[in-house]
Amino acid sequence: MKVGVGLPTSTPGHDRELLLRWARRAEELGFSSLGVVDRVVYDCWEPISALTLAAEVTEQARLATMILIGPLRTTAELASQAAELQELSAGRLVLGLGIGARHDDYQAKGVDPSRRGRALSEQLAELRMDPASPPLLVGGGGPAFLRAARFADGYVHGGGPPRAFAGAAARARAAWREAERPGSPQLWGQGYFALGDAQRGADYLRDYYAFTGGFAERIAAANLTSPRAVKDFVRGYEEEGCDELVLFPTVSHPAQLERLAEAVAA
């Protein structure tokens, strides 16, 4: 299993200097990929722009959206953005797409959320048939498993303990079988960490996930706040057959990255 790290693009205090430094250092520390999230109605950076910036200061790391809310962009717009970044990064983009979890993101963009599942499927079909398409992943639950098998190279899980990942991974594989796709799906997982300053990390998660109601507390409580917790999490994901696990910061500080690298290496 490869281990990647998220870029600080939505944590409080994110800025250009931190992002450049973070991306550069993450690659030096051996993280296999740099991940970004996508939200419109939140103080954060647009994922493709952030990855474009990161692409400039890195050479090897894959650049992954986990996930990008596909239906919020027109397919033509997304395809050209993706193709451009793919070229700029010498083919390092992995485009993870989903419908997202929030209606207000759709309202902000003036997109009808009621047709988002269908819109995403149509978008994926179009992207996939473009010879310039980057590798695709699909995230989400329910219909997302077949969507991943139908249009993509794999499935990206939304986060949670290894056991939750295992359940989703089994479904993603089952859909892959049903679709008679050769081989097996790429399986990506993700988690949050705050090594030191757990309180700030929890505050950020409560705020970021406030729209989920009581669920935000659970996400905050699951934040990986010790090297031990990180190690157990990484091992758990590896045992469940994850191909690439991306750990997202909840605190905007370069020391977080160093501590994560130590915890993962130990």
């Binding site: 079909a125 098998a149 139908r150 679709a179 008679e180 796709r181």
Partner: peptide
Amino acid sequence: RSLGLDLP
């Protein structure tokens, strides 16, 4: 199928 399912 190596590319996907139902892609004309």
